[in-house]
Design a protein around this nucleic acid. Structure first.
Length: 884
RNA sequence: GGGCAGUUAGCUCAGCUAGGGAGAGCAUCUCCCUUACAAGGAGGAGGUCGCAGGUUCAAUCCCUGCACUGCCCACCA
């Protein structure tokens, strides 16, 4: 088997994507001997195609799934897509528009059929892209939020809610999107600051020449005012509360009410109250039993409240009303004013609060429970800082408007008994999981279904159990085995929209949390820290990155900055560094593989030398950190720890040291070092496999000459027998000496190819055996042909000097030494050590330090001071000799 | 208005949940195509750890206040 000199990601990725799918590597079935670990994918909308957000979200889930699988769990990651309600309907509507048609031209039935057709044709694009990303999903379980099982779950849930009295229909103030022509829930409204005006209007007091001035941002709604509100503590208006106002332009009489909600500081302290078009006003109206008059209808046009403005679009009506107010002397002034305006989260259109007949879900009880499980940490957040916002939101939640006036979605499973004329009879609505054929009340077979569909998030909220056929059979074995899931991985933007509701519904229907952990990752931003968006043109397409740098590089780069809750800035540099890392692993493996040849190497490492023990000690520590970090979703730490171990420990030092034994003609010597190299390499790629699955599976198959995926192997476990602190200390000394020698070589322009003579004068006698024992390492890494170690070795003329802790190192130079250069170098070294020394002196001259700091700390600093003193003495002595 | 993050080398970020050596990658400078890797190796330069106080023998780390940046929530007439 030949390995390419440069890792060929394309060849390898194609191979393994196919392998994992064909071999059903990630399929799961009930195995009661194993504990389950489940993740349900946050289902991407069928309209979607893979963007960086998905790439991050799904790479992280895949890493967790692969890790847990290797840890021995029976893992299951359920794939699927979301029908995406309004968003998806909008996409298809746009397609129709290109043909010059609207959904009304087709009619409901044909339009929905077209939606399904579209979904069939293009809806799985993103799933194919997830396959390319390497996601270890159980593809045979692919679900869709509108497939039969999910539909059954929705109907079951609706009926249970309804029977419990939690779902009700009523006319309430709702958020209405005039473009989507539907009601939205409170969290589907996004608030953006917008420049507008503040109009100050005179409201005359009845039987008086006096008037109140109100300030408003929406003058057109004034014709629907049913009160003016002031703060009860406002001295200015003390006598006016309870008086009657004549509403300008309309002439209707309205009362002045006192309500604590009014801010005395704002505007004039007097608020016009339009209950039908403002949340606050609606609440004031409820508290004071005010009449609710609708001014604007669902099309955004004026109602017939005032004949003159009837049917006018609200925007025109504003101009007309302002102009009329001005004309009649009611308008005092207009100020510029910037305030937040609600926008539809799907299309950005300004939301119009209007009165509308809708279905609502009572959430008070569910919210309490969902909040409670977070408070007592049954559901844990990573990072924990999201716990508070989550509970705060739930603790202040209002009823959820669940009906939407669109056609794409789960139609509300409520049927009405109708008479011959098509009018609803007095029979109660019929709510059944199975479509009813006749009215249970009167036996009539003329039934009609409610026109509305459910909020897309209603079905999403049931995703963790609807995918296990809860709708069909609420107590089935799979549900019992796989639910609750292990972790929910998501960005914070759908924490309320989705996560909180899954917890509510899970507790409601299964009496159990849907997941014990919520891992909230950040947002992928561009290199300037800006959110990626099509309009900014700063979108990085993950598919292009996969193509250019390799999928493992994309995954590694993302994971490397995926600290819980932190946004990340990425650029090509990140992917480039990751690609280089992949190549490094590839070549380290190539080196080991080539050297192995046909040599039989035992599975267990043969531990002989200091370096063996040192690297095993480092490897062992790495296992500990990586495992802990995986379990706590610190995926960034996992990646960085492995990067550091592979590059700076394994490659830079151990592999370099291994070359001494590798070139030996003694086959046993080679076998021994190979046993350690291979042992560590295999363990390392196991740890890396969850993040870089392609290259690791490829290397695994080469090293083991196997066709079994690496995810079927077990994750390395921390092992007490590989703790070698003594050897770790020895290696630290070796590394210090080698670095010092390299430094001198570099600064004195000694060719990297040249072999040199080096003498080490050991001042600290305890170090003599260590240095002597490991002299081969120093020779190899310092490129030394002649190494002399001893006590009382004197520096000969024409040799460069450097000092390490307890040691003096002399490097005799060929020919004449450049004295000026050497003097500069030594002076610099002295300067650095003096800086260090000053710190120690300062500490030790502080009597409080001696008295109060721990004895070990004082001793440590004293020792350090002695070291620096000795080093400086040596260096200065040498410098002095040059001066002569 | 309330809350949550962040502020460390030119850039991207670790370190802060054990207070006692300020680190990595990229960029930059010097040397090297040394038979795993030039997508590489060796070495260097670069930081008063946002500001001001406090606790402590000792603060990048703990506490308080402030500034700036970003995000979330809100009853912004």
């Amino acid at each position: 088997m030949e390995m390419e000199k440069v890792y060929d990601s394309k060849r390898v990725e194609e191979k393994w994507v196919k392998y994992w799918i064909e071999n059903k590597t990630f399929s799961s079935k009930i195995d009661k001997d194993k504990k389950s670990f489940t993740i349900v994918i946050p289902p991407p909308n069928v309209t979607g195609s893979l963007h960086m957000g998905h790439a991050l979200n799904d790479s992280l889930q895949d890493a967790i799934i692969r890790f847990r699988k290797m840890q021995g769990f029976n893992t299951l990651w359920v794939p699927g897509t979301d029908h995406g309600g309004i968003a998806t309907q909008t996409v298809v509507e746009k397609l129709l528009k290109k043909e010059g048609k609207t959904k009304y031209d087709l009619g409901r039935e044909k339009f929905v059929k077209k939606m399904w057709q579209w979904r069939q044709e293009t809806g799985d694009t993103i799933l194919d892209q997830l396959k390319k990303l390497g996601c270890g999903l159980d593809w045979d379980r692919t679900r869709f939020t509108m497939d039969e099982a999910c539909s059954k779950a929705v109907k079951r849930a609706f009926k249970q809610f309804y029977d419990k009295g939690l779902i009700y229909r009523g006319k309430r103030l709702v958020n209405w999107c005039p473009r989507c022509n539907t009601a939205l829930s409170d969290i589907e409204v996004e608030y953006h600051p917008e420049k507008g005006n503040l109009w100050y209007i005179k409201y005359p007091i009845k039987n008086s020449n006096d008037f109140l001035t109100v300030a408003t941002t929406r003058p057109e709604t004034m014709i629907g005012d049913t009160a003016v509100a002031v703060n009860p503590n406002d001295a200015r208006y003390k006598d006016i509360v309870g008086k009657t106002i004549i509403l300008p332009l309309v002439g209707r009489e309205i009362k002045v009410v006192a309500d604590y909600i009014v801010d005395m500081q704002f505007g004039t302290g007097a608020v016009k109250v339009t209950p039908a078009h403002d949340n606050v006003d609606y609440e004031i109206a409820r508290r004071h039993n005010l009449e609710i008059l609708e001014v604007i209808d669902s099309n955004g046009n004026m109602t017939n409240l005032v004949e003159k403005y009837k049917c006018m679009p609200a925007k025109e009506a504003r101009e007309a009303i302002v102009s009329d107010l001005k004309e009649q002397g009611y308008l005092i002034k207009i100020e510029d004013y910037s305030h937040s305006v609600g926008k539809c989260y799907r299309c950005g259109t300004t939301i119009e609060p209007i009165m509308s007949e809708q279905w609502f879900l009572r959430v008070e009880e569910m919210s309490k429970r969902a909040s409670q499980v977070a408070k007592n940490d049954k559901v844990k957040f990573y990072p924990a800082s999201w716990k508070k916002p989550y509970t705060l939101w739930l603790d202040n939640l209002r009823d959820w408007c669940i009906s939407r006036q669109i056609w794409w979605g789960h139609r509300i499973p409520v049927f009405y008994c109708i008479d011959e004329k098509g009018d609803k009879t007095s029979c109660p609505p019929i709510v059944e999981q199975n479509t009813p054929t006749k009215c249970p009340n009167c036996g009539n077979t003329h039934l009609v279904q409610d026109n509305d569909v459910l909020d897309t998030w209603f079905s999403s909220a049931m995703w963790p159990f609807s995918v296990f056929n809860w709708g069909e059979k609420p107590d089935n074995e799979e549900l019992k085995y796989y639910y609750p899931t292990g972790v929910l991985v998501t960005g914070h933007e759908i924490l309320y929209l989705w996560v909180a509701r899954m917890v509510q519904m899970g507790l409601e229907f299964l009496d159990d949390i849907p997941f014990s952990d919520v891992f909230i990752h950040g947002i992928v931003r561009d290199k300037h820290g800006l959110k990626m968006s099509k309009s900014k043109g700063n979108v990085i397409n993950p598919l292009e990155i996969m193509n250019e740098f390799g999928t493992d590089s994309l995954r590694f780069a993302l994971s490397q900055s995926a600290a819980p809750g932190r946004d990340m800035q990425i650029s090509n540099d990140s992917f480039l560094a990751a690609r280089n890392f992949a190549n490094k692993i590839w070549n380290a493996s190539r080196f080991i593989f080539m050297n192995k040849g046909n040599i039989e190497v035992p599975q267990e490492p043969i531990v002989k030398e200091t370096s063996d023990k040192w690297i095993l000690d480092e490897y062992n520590k790495t296992i500990k950190t990586v495992t802990y970090s995986f379990e706590h979703y610190d995926i960034d730490v996992v990646s960085r720890t492995l990067y550091d171990f592979v590059w700076t420990k394994f490659c830079d030092w151990y592999i370099e040291l291994s070359k001494i034994r590798m070139t030996s003609i003694n086959i046993e010597e080679k076998r021994q070092v190979l046993s350690v190299l291979i042992y560590i390499l295999k363990g390392t790629i196991k740890m890396l496999a969850p993040i870089m699955p392609f290259i690791c599976d490829e290397l695994w198959s080469i090293l083991n000459n196997t066709k079994e995926s690496i995810v079927k192997s077990s994750f390395p476990i921390y092992n007490e027998k590989f703790v070698f602190s003594n050897e770790a200390n020895q290696m630290a000394i070796v590394q210090e000496i080698v670095s010092k020698i390299r430094n001198v070589r570099s600064e004195m322009n000694i060719s990297p190819a040249a072999f040199i003579t080096t003498k080490i004068n050991v001042l600290d006698e305890s170090k003599l055996p260590v240095v002597d024992f490991n002299k081969n390492y120093i020779k190899a890494l310092g490129k030394i042909k002649n190494l002399i170690i001893g006590k009382n070795i004197a520096r000969e003329k024409n040799s460069a000097l450097t000092v390490a802790t307890g040691l003096e190192i002399f490097i005799p130079l060929e020919g004449l030494i450049d004295i000026e250069k050497e003097k500069t170098r030594i002076s610099k070294e002295i300067k650095n050590i003096i800086l260090e020394q000053e710190k120690y002196n300062k500490k030790l001259s502080n009597p409080n330090f001696i008295a109060k700091a721990p004895k070990t700390e004082v001793e440590r600093i004293k020792q350090k001071l002695l070291d620096t003193q000795s080093k400086i003495a040596t260096l200065k002595e040498t410098l002095k000799n040059y001066e002569k």
